[in-house]
Design a protein around this nucleic acid. Structure first.
Lengths: 125, 125
DNA sequence: CTGTATCCTGCTGGATACTG
DNA sequence: CAGTATCCAGCAGGATACAG
């Protein structure tokens, strides 16, 4: 693959667009953050919840279920009391690492300043 | 790869998360595709519309305005008849190239197959 | 600890018609 | 050609309460 100077003119219009397809899989409140934090390794439900902070329980469950259905995250349930459930990236999920790291760096350098300028997020606590 | 084994424990929770911030800027119907197609160079409104195909005029205008407000896209208006408006990436927008290309490749390899399996998109036109 | 079940609201985005 | 203006439906996602 030589840098994709000329991508296949295979008409990436509409629903078949791979860029949109990728974005669709991360779209949903907190999915990006979830995947990013799971890069660190296996995490239990509440560990994840604590790291995300602002996400509600309902949403976290929902996003995790979607990520599981997409095959990006694996859910491991232990039959113990109190309940213990661990989440980790699948191989497919782990293949997102370079993208997630790139998004983080670009976010720090560009996205956060832009959003702050647009007053969409507080000026940093 | 020791890149980010331990990221700054600077609590990327909630709204200050750079990954989420980046994703927020692309979220919105077709934004990913728009940016991707503009990598090719300057495009007029209708050229862009033709490439995207499935996006309505209203949405395209809306997304372009948002991208412009974020400083990722530049809008050049020519005072002629019939009207002529060109769109191109700003430097900040162009800095997304590696991410967009990565999203495209990951999308072809993983996202599209996943979405097809979930029957969210037709089995290829 | 790890979830479901409801209820409810706002925003996203589609369809359509009109304009400089 | 390149928009703007309306109207409207659907669903994402918050708040809250309950459960194994």
């Amino acid at each position: 693959m030589d840098t994709v100077k000329k991508w296949r003119s295979k008409t990436y219009t509409g629903e078949g667009c791979p860029v949109e397809a990728s974005l669709e899989l991360f779209s949903g409140k907190g999915k990006g953050m979830i995947l990013y934090h799971l890069l660190e390794g296996t995490l239990r439900f509440n560990e994840l919840k604590r790291r995300l902070g602002s996400v509600t329980q309902r949403m976290l469950t929902k996003q995790l279920r979607e990520l599981e259905a997409s095959g990006l995250v694996h859910r491991q349930v232990y039959a113990v009391v109190p309940p213990k459930v661990e989440y980790r990236l699948t191989d497919t999920g782990a293949s997102l690492e370079p993208i997630l790291l790139a998004l983080k760096e670009w976010g720090e350098e560009h996205a956060l300043p832009i959003l702050r300028q647009q007053a969409k997020i507080p000026a940093e606590s």
